[in-house]
Design a protein around this nucleic acid. Sequence first.
DNA 1: GCACATTCTGATAACTGTTCTCATTCCCAT
DNA 2: ATGGGAATGAGAACAGTTATCAGAATGTGC
Lengths: 155, 155
Amino acid sequence: MAAHTHHAHGDPAAWTDHAARTLAEHGTRSGGARRAVVATLADQDCCASAQEIHERLRAAGRPVGIASVYRSLDLLHGLGLVTRVETGDGVARYEPALPGGEHHHHLVCVRCGGVEAFEDDALERAIHAVGDRVDFDVTAHDVALRGRCRACRAA
Amino acid sequence: MAAHTHHAHGDPAAWTDHAARTLAEHGTRSGGARRAVVATLADQDCCASAQEIHERLRAAGRPVGIASVYRSLDLLHGLGLVTRVETGDGVARYEPALPGGEHHHHLVCVRCGGVEAFEDDALERAIHAVGDRVDFDVTAHDVALRGRCRACRAA
DNA sequence: GCACATTCTGATAACTGTTCTCATTCCCAT
DNA sequence: ATGGGAATGAGAACAGTTATCAGAATGTGC
Ligand SMILES: [Zn+2]
Ligand SMILES: [Zn+2]
Ligand SMILES: [Zn+2]
Ligand SMILES: [Zn+2]
Protein backbone atom coordinates (compact mmCIF):
# COMPACT_ATOMS: atom_id res chain seq x y z
CA MET A 1 0.00 0.00 0.00
CA ALA A 2 1.16 3.51 -0.70
CA ALA A 3 2.60 5.39 2.23
CA HIS A 4 0.25 8.29 1.67
CA THR A 5 -3.03 8.92 -0.09
CA HIS A 6 -2.77 12.46 -1.32
CA HIS A 7 -5.70 12.37 -3.69
CA ALA A 8 -9.07 12.12 -2.07
CA HIS A 9 -11.05 12.00 -5.28
CA GLY A 10 -9.80 9.01 -7.20
CA ASP A 11 -6.63 7.79 -8.81
CA PRO A 12 -4.90 10.61 -10.69
CA ALA A 13 -3.24 8.17 -13.10
CA ALA A 14 -6.66 6.77 -14.01
CA TRP A 15 -7.95 10.24 -14.81
CA THR A 16 -4.82 11.03 -16.82
CA ASP A 17 -5.38 7.90 -18.91
CA HIS A 18 -9.04 8.68 -19.32
CA ALA A 19 -8.19 12.21 -20.44
CA ALA A 20 -5.50 11.05 -22.87
CA ARG A 21 -7.89 8.49 -24.36
CA THR A 22 -10.73 10.97 -24.74
CA LEU A 23 -8.44 13.54 -26.31
CA ALA A 24 -7.09 10.96 -28.75
CA GLU A 25 -10.61 9.88 -29.68
CA HIS A 26 -11.35 13.45 -30.61
CA GLY A 27 -8.46 13.53 -33.05
CA THR A 28 -6.36 16.03 -31.17
CA ARG A 29 -2.59 15.89 -31.38
CA SER A 30 -0.58 15.45 -28.25
CA GLY A 31 1.41 18.60 -27.72
CA GLY A 32 3.71 19.17 -24.80
CA ALA A 33 1.88 22.14 -23.36
CA ARG A 34 -1.46 20.42 -23.06
CA ARG A 35 0.16 17.27 -21.70
CA ALA A 36 1.78 19.38 -18.99
CA VAL A 37 -1.54 21.00 -18.11
CA VAL A 38 -3.23 17.60 -17.89
CA ALA A 39 -0.43 16.32 -15.67
CA THR A 40 -0.80 19.31 -13.35
CA LEU A 41 -4.55 18.86 -13.14
CA ALA A 42 -4.12 15.20 -12.34
CA ASP A 43 -2.01 16.22 -9.41
CA GLN A 44 -4.75 18.44 -7.96
CA ASP A 45 -7.22 17.37 -5.32
CA CYS A 46 -9.38 20.42 -5.79
CA CYS A 47 -9.78 23.38 -8.05
CA ALA A 48 -6.97 25.56 -9.40
CA SER A 49 -7.13 28.66 -11.55
CA ALA A 50 -5.50 28.99 -14.95
CA GLN A 51 -2.92 31.35 -13.52
CA GLU A 52 -2.15 29.01 -10.64
CA ILE A 53 -1.58 26.18 -13.10
CA HIS A 54 0.55 28.48 -15.22
CA GLU A 55 2.63 29.45 -12.21
CA ARG A 56 2.94 25.88 -10.98
CA LEU A 57 4.26 24.76 -14.36
CA ARG A 58 6.75 27.59 -14.47
CA ALA A 59 7.95 26.74 -10.97
CA ALA A 60 8.29 23.10 -11.99
CA GLY A 61 10.68 24.08 -14.80
CA ARG A 62 8.16 23.35 -17.55
CA PRO A 63 6.87 26.81 -18.49
CA VAL A 64 3.81 26.89 -20.71
CA GLY A 65 2.33 29.94 -22.40
CA ILE A 66 -0.67 31.30 -20.54
CA ALA A 67 -2.70 31.13 -23.76
CA SER A 68 -2.01 27.40 -23.99
CA VAL A 69 -3.17 26.95 -20.42
CA TYR A 70 -6.45 28.69 -21.17
CA ARG A 71 -6.84 26.82 -24.45
CA SER A 72 -6.18 23.48 -22.83
CA LEU A 73 -8.63 24.12 -20.02
CA ASP A 74 -11.27 25.23 -22.49
CA LEU A 75 -10.81 22.11 -24.60
CA LEU A 76 -10.84 19.82 -21.57
CA HIS A 77 -13.96 21.51 -20.29
CA GLY A 78 -15.66 21.09 -23.65
CA LEU A 79 -14.91 17.38 -23.54
CA GLY A 80 -16.22 17.08 -19.99
CA LEU A 81 -12.80 16.22 -18.63
CA VAL A 82 -12.65 19.07 -16.15
CA THR A 83 -15.22 20.84 -14.02
CA ARG A 84 -15.30 24.61 -13.96
CA VAL A 85 -15.79 26.03 -10.47
CA GLU A 86 -16.82 29.59 -9.68
CA THR A 87 -15.92 30.56 -6.16
CA GLY A 88 -17.22 34.10 -6.47
CA ASP A 89 -14.00 36.10 -6.79
CA GLY A 90 -14.32 36.41 -10.53
CA VAL A 91 -11.71 33.80 -11.44
CA ALA A 92 -12.57 30.45 -13.00
CA ARG A 93 -11.08 27.38 -11.37
CA TYR A 94 -10.82 23.88 -12.73
CA GLU A 95 -10.57 20.38 -11.33
CA PRO A 96 -10.50 16.93 -12.93
CA ALA A 97 -13.95 15.48 -13.73
CA LEU A 98 -13.84 11.78 -12.93
CA PRO A 99 -15.44 9.50 -15.51
CA GLY A 100 -17.61 7.81 -12.87
CA GLY A 101 -19.32 11.09 -12.06
CA GLU A 102 -18.28 11.17 -8.43
CA HIS A 103 -17.60 14.73 -7.44
CA HIS A 104 -17.66 17.16 -4.57
CA HIS A 105 -18.83 20.68 -3.88
CA HIS A 106 -17.22 23.60 -2.12
CA LEU A 107 -17.20 25.61 1.07
CA VAL A 108 -15.83 29.08 0.39
CA CYS A 109 -14.58 31.31 3.18
CA VAL A 110 -15.78 34.86 2.61
CA ARG A 111 -12.90 36.24 4.68
CA CYS A 112 -9.76 34.43 3.51
CA GLY A 113 -11.07 33.06 0.22
CA GLY A 114 -10.06 29.53 1.14
CA VAL A 115 -11.89 26.62 -0.45
CA GLU A 116 -12.72 23.26 1.12
CA ALA A 117 -14.45 20.31 -0.46
CA PHE A 118 -17.41 18.32 0.83
CA GLU A 119 -19.62 15.52 -0.44
CA ASP A 120 -23.21 14.86 0.50
CA ASP A 121 -25.46 12.20 -0.94
CA ALA A 122 -28.69 13.71 0.34
CA LEU A 123 -27.82 16.97 -1.38
CA GLU A 124 -27.10 15.12 -4.62
CA ARG A 125 -30.46 13.35 -4.41
CA ALA A 126 -32.26 16.65 -3.80
CA ILE A 127 -30.55 18.23 -6.79
CA HIS A 128 -31.38 15.26 -8.95
CA ALA A 129 -35.01 15.49 -7.92
CA VAL A 130 -35.14 19.16 -8.88
CA GLY A 131 -33.63 18.33 -12.26
CA ASP A 132 -36.38 15.79 -12.86
CA ARG A 133 -39.17 18.19 -12.07
CA VAL A 134 -38.12 21.34 -13.95
CA ASP A 135 -38.60 22.02 -17.65
CA PHE A 136 -34.88 22.03 -18.27
CA ASP A 137 -32.46 19.38 -19.47
CA VAL A 138 -30.07 19.56 -16.52
CA THR A 139 -26.61 18.17 -17.22
CA ALA A 140 -24.49 19.70 -14.46
CA HIS A 141 -24.79 21.53 -11.19
CA ASP A 142 -22.75 23.75 -8.92
CA VAL A 143 -23.17 24.25 -5.20
CA ALA A 144 -21.18 26.70 -3.11
CA LEU A 145 -21.66 27.22 0.60
CA ARG A 146 -20.25 30.51 1.83
CA GLY A 147 -19.25 31.43 5.33
CA ARG A 148 -16.27 31.43 7.64
CA CYS A 149 -13.75 28.67 7.94
CA ARG A 150 -12.59 27.54 11.38
CA ALA A 151 -9.50 29.75 11.36
CA CYS A 152 -11.37 32.88 10.25
CA ARG A 153 -14.18 32.28 12.74
CA ALA A 154 -11.65 32.51 15.57
CA ALA A 155 -9.93 35.62 14.18
CA MET B 1 -56.55 43.32 -6.09
CA ALA B 2 -53.90 44.24 -8.64
CA ALA B 3 -54.59 43.17 -12.18
CA HIS B 4 -51.23 41.48 -12.45
CA THR B 5 -48.60 40.09 -10.11
CA HIS B 6 -45.35 40.83 -11.82
CA HIS B 7 -43.08 40.16 -8.89
CA ALA B 8 -42.91 36.55 -7.84
CA HIS B 9 -40.57 37.09 -4.93
CA GLY B 10 -42.32 39.47 -2.61
CA ASP B 11 -43.52 43.02 -2.60
CA PRO B 12 -40.97 45.32 -4.24
CA ALA B 13 -42.13 48.30 -2.18
CA ALA B 14 -41.51 46.34 1.00
CA TRP B 15 -37.96 45.56 -0.07
CA THR B 16 -37.39 49.18 -1.07
CA ASP B 17 -38.49 50.32 2.38
CA HIS B 18 -36.37 47.69 4.06
CA ALA B 19 -33.36 48.76 2.02
CA ALA B 20 -33.91 52.46 2.70
CA ARG B 21 -34.25 51.77 6.42
CA THR B 22 -31.14 49.62 6.59
CA LEU B 23 -29.13 52.18 4.63
CA ALA B 24 -30.31 54.98 6.93
CA GLU B 25 -29.39 52.93 10.01
CA HIS B 26 -25.88 52.66 8.65
CA GLY B 27 -25.54 56.42 8.45
CA THR B 28 -25.35 56.69 4.70
CA ARG B 29 -26.67 59.74 2.91
CA SER B 30 -29.40 59.35 0.37
CA GLY B 31 -27.98 60.29 -3.00
CA GLY B 32 -29.94 60.14 -6.20
CA ALA B 33 -27.76 57.58 -7.95
CA ARG B 34 -28.07 54.96 -5.26
CA ARG B 35 -31.77 55.62 -4.87
CA ALA B 36 -32.18 54.97 -8.60
CA VAL B 37 -30.22 51.72 -8.37
CA VAL B 38 -32.34 50.55 -5.45
CA ALA B 39 -35.51 51.40 -7.36
CA THR B 40 -34.30 49.42 -10.37
CA LEU B 41 -33.42 46.43 -8.24
CA ALA B 42 -36.82 46.55 -6.57
CA ASP B 43 -38.35 46.26 -10.01
CA GLN B 44 -36.41 43.06 -10.81
CA ASP B 45 -37.77 39.58 -10.35
CA CYS B 46 -34.41 37.95 -10.88
CA CYS B 47 -30.78 38.82 -11.25
CA ALA B 48 -29.40 41.67 -13.33
CA SER B 49 -25.80 42.66 -14.00
CA ALA B 50 -24.33 46.04 -13.14
CA GLN B 51 -24.19 46.94 -16.79
CA GLU B 52 -27.78 45.89 -17.36
CA ILE B 53 -28.88 48.11 -14.47
CA HIS B 54 -26.75 50.91 -15.86
CA GLU B 55 -28.34 50.53 -19.27
CA ARG B 56 -31.85 50.27 -17.87
CA LEU B 57 -31.39 53.50 -15.95
CA ARG B 58 -30.05 55.27 -19.00
CA ALA B 59 -33.00 54.03 -21.07
CA ALA B 60 -35.39 55.25 -18.37
CA GLY B 61 -33.97 58.77 -18.67
CA ARG B 62 -32.21 58.66 -15.32
CA PRO B 63 -28.58 57.97 -16.29
CA VAL B 64 -26.24 57.01 -13.47
CA GLY B 65 -22.47 56.73 -13.67
CA ILE B 66 -21.32 53.14 -14.00
CA ALA B 67 -19.04 53.61 -11.01
CA SER B 68 -22.02 54.59 -8.88
CA VAL B 69 -23.86 51.46 -9.98
CA TYR B 70 -20.94 49.27 -8.93
CA ARG B 71 -20.49 51.20 -5.69
CA SER B 72 -24.17 50.93 -4.82
CA LEU B 73 -24.28 47.21 -5.51
CA ASP B 74 -21.17 46.67 -3.45
CA LEU B 75 -22.63 48.59 -0.52
CA LEU B 76 -25.98 46.83 -0.76
CA HIS B 77 -24.24 43.49 -0.90
CA GLY B 78 -22.18 44.32 2.15
CA LEU B 79 -25.38 45.12 4.04
CA GLY B 80 -27.01 41.90 2.90
CA LEU B 81 -29.62 43.75 0.87
CA VAL B 82 -28.80 42.06 -2.41
CA THR B 83 -27.65 38.58 -3.38
CA ARG B 84 -24.75 38.19 -5.76
CA VAL B 85 -25.32 35.50 -8.36
CA GLU B 86 -22.63 33.92 -10.53
CA THR B 87 -24.06 32.32 -13.62
CA GLY B 88 -20.72 31.21 -14.99
CA ASP B 89 -20.14 33.75 -17.75
CA GLY B 90 -17.80 35.84 -15.65
CA VAL B 91 -20.39 38.52 -14.94
CA ALA B 92 -21.71 39.22 -11.46
CA ARG B 93 -25.47 39.60 -11.21
CA TYR B 94 -27.54 40.93 -8.35
CA GLU B 95 -31.07 40.52 -7.08
CA PRO B 96 -32.91 41.85 -4.01
CA ALA B 97 -32.39 39.82 -0.84
CA LEU B 98 -35.70 39.69 0.98
CA PRO B 99 -35.54 40.24 4.74
CA GLY B 100 -37.48 37.05 5.44
CA GLY B 101 -34.77 34.95 3.81
CA GLU B 102 -37.02 33.48 1.15
CA HIS B 103 -35.04 33.08 -2.04
CA HIS B 104 -34.66 31.04 -5.17
CA HIS B 105 -31.89 29.42 -7.17
CA HIS B 106 -31.14 29.33 -10.87
CA LEU B 107 -31.27 27.18 -13.96
CA VAL B 108 -28.70 28.39 -16.48
CA CYS B 109 -28.89 27.42 -20.13
CA VAL B 110 -25.43 26.59 -21.41
CA ARG B 111 -26.46 27.40 -24.96
CA CYS B 112 -28.34 30.70 -24.83
CA GLY B 113 -27.19 31.88 -21.42
CA GLY B 114 -30.77 32.34 -20.23
CA VAL B 115 -31.53 32.15 -16.53
CA GLU B 116 -34.67 30.80 -14.88
CA ALA B 117 -35.50 30.68 -11.21
CA PHE B 118 -36.70 27.75 -9.14
CA GLU B 119 -37.42 27.06 -5.49
CA ASP B 120 -37.17 23.74 -3.72
CA ASP B 121 -37.69 23.12 -0.03
CA ALA B 122 -36.09 19.69 -0.01
CA LEU B 123 -32.95 21.18 -1.52
CA GLU B 124 -32.92 23.92 1.10
CA ARG B 125 -33.23 21.33 3.87
CA ALA B 126 -30.37 19.29 2.40
CA ILE B 127 -28.15 22.37 2.21
CA HIS B 128 -29.04 23.33 5.75
CA ALA B 129 -28.14 19.84 6.94
CA VAL B 130 -24.75 20.05 5.25
CA GLY B 131 -24.12 23.40 6.90
CA ASP B 132 -24.82 21.86 10.28
CA ARG B 133 -22.41 19.01 9.82
CA VAL B 134 -19.33 20.74 8.34
CA ASP B 135 -16.69 22.65 10.29
CA PHE B 136 -17.64 25.91 8.67
CA ASP B 137 -19.90 28.75 9.75
CA VAL B 138 -22.17 28.73 6.70
CA THR B 139 -24.08 31.97 6.14
CA ALA B 140 -25.08 31.76 2.48
CA HIS B 141 -25.29 29.34 -0.39
CA ASP B 142 -25.49 29.30 -4.15
CA VAL B 143 -26.90 26.61 -6.38
CA ALA B 144 -26.81 26.64 -10.16
CA LEU B 145 -28.21 23.89 -12.34
CA ARG B 146 -26.81 23.95 -15.86
CA GLY B 147 -28.28 22.46 -18.99
CA ARG B 148 -30.56 23.32 -21.86
CA CYS B 149 -33.75 25.28 -21.63
CA ARG B 150 -36.83 24.12 -23.50
CA ALA B 151 -36.19 26.35 -26.51
CA CYS B 152 -32.55 25.35 -26.87
CA ARG B 153 -33.32 21.66 -26.44
CA ALA B 154 -35.53 21.83 -29.52
CA ALA B 155 -33.02 23.77 -31.59
C1' DG C 1 -32.48 79.79 5.97
C1' DC C 2 -27.13 79.45 5.92
C1' DA C 3 -22.54 77.64 6.46
C1' DC C 4 -19.92 73.82 6.74
C1' DA C 5 -18.03 69.12 6.97
C1' DT C 6 -18.74 65.03 4.78
C1' DT C 7 -20.49 61.99 1.66
C1' DC C 8 -21.89 61.00 -2.93
C1' DT C 9 -21.37 61.22 -7.80
C1' DG C 10 -19.55 60.63 -12.45
C1' DA C 11 -15.84 60.90 -15.98
C1' DT C 12 -12.09 58.53 -16.81
C1' DA C 13 -7.77 56.05 -15.92
C1' DA C 14 -6.04 51.83 -14.29
C1' DC C 15 -6.25 47.03 -13.44
C1' DT C 16 -7.19 41.97 -13.99
C1' DG C 17 -8.59 37.82 -15.96
C1' DT C 18 -9.46 36.05 -20.35
C1' DT C 19 -9.55 35.75 -25.40
C1' DC C 20 -7.64 36.79 -29.95
C1' DT C 21 -3.91 37.06 -33.45
C1' DC C 22 -0.39 35.29 -35.95
C1' DA C 23 4.20 33.70 -36.95
C1' DT C 24 6.66 29.66 -35.66
C1' DT C 25 7.15 24.96 -34.07
C1' DC C 26 5.78 20.43 -33.60
C1' DC C 27 3.12 16.17 -34.52
C1' DC C 28 2.10 12.35 -37.18
C1' DA C 29 -0.04 9.93 -41.27
C1' DT C 30 1.76 9.00 -45.47
C1' DA D 1 11.82 11.78 -44.63
C1' DT D 2 8.19 15.03 -45.94
C1' DG D 3 4.07 17.88 -46.10
C1' DG D 4 -0.18 19.49 -44.20
C1' DG D 5 -2.30 20.93 -40.37
C1' DA D 6 -2.76 21.31 -35.47
C1' DA D 7 -0.40 23.17 -31.31
C1' DT D 8 2.25 26.66 -29.18
C1' DG D 9 3.74 31.14 -27.15
C1' DA D 10 4.40 36.22 -27.17
C1' DG D 11 1.93 39.90 -27.12
C1' DA D 12 -2.14 42.75 -28.46
C1' DA D 13 -6.86 43.29 -27.62
C1' DC D 14 -10.89 42.95 -24.87
C1' DA D 15 -14.48 43.12 -21.01
C1' DG D 16 -15.78 43.66 -16.48
C1' DT D 17 -14.60 45.80 -12.53
C1' DT D 18 -12.15 48.93 -9.35
C1' DA D 19 -9.50 53.18 -8.16
C1' DT D 20 -8.90 58.15 -8.53
C1' DC D 21 -10.24 62.74 -7.90
C1' DA D 22 -12.55 67.09 -8.62
C1' DG D 23 -17.02 68.92 -8.24
C1' DA D 24 -22.00 68.42 -6.66
C1' DA D 25 -25.25 67.11 -3.25
C1' DT D 26 -26.60 65.99 1.53
C1' DG D 27 -27.88 67.00 6.05
C1' DT D 28 -26.45 68.81 10.68
C1' DG D 29 -25.81 72.69 13.76
C1' DC D 30 -26.57 77.17 14.02
ZN1 LIG E 1 -12.92 20.90 -5.57
ZN1 LIG F 1 -23.21 17.37 -6.83
ZN1 LIG G 1 -32.88 35.04 -9.44
ZN1 LIG H 1 -31.34 28.15 -1.11
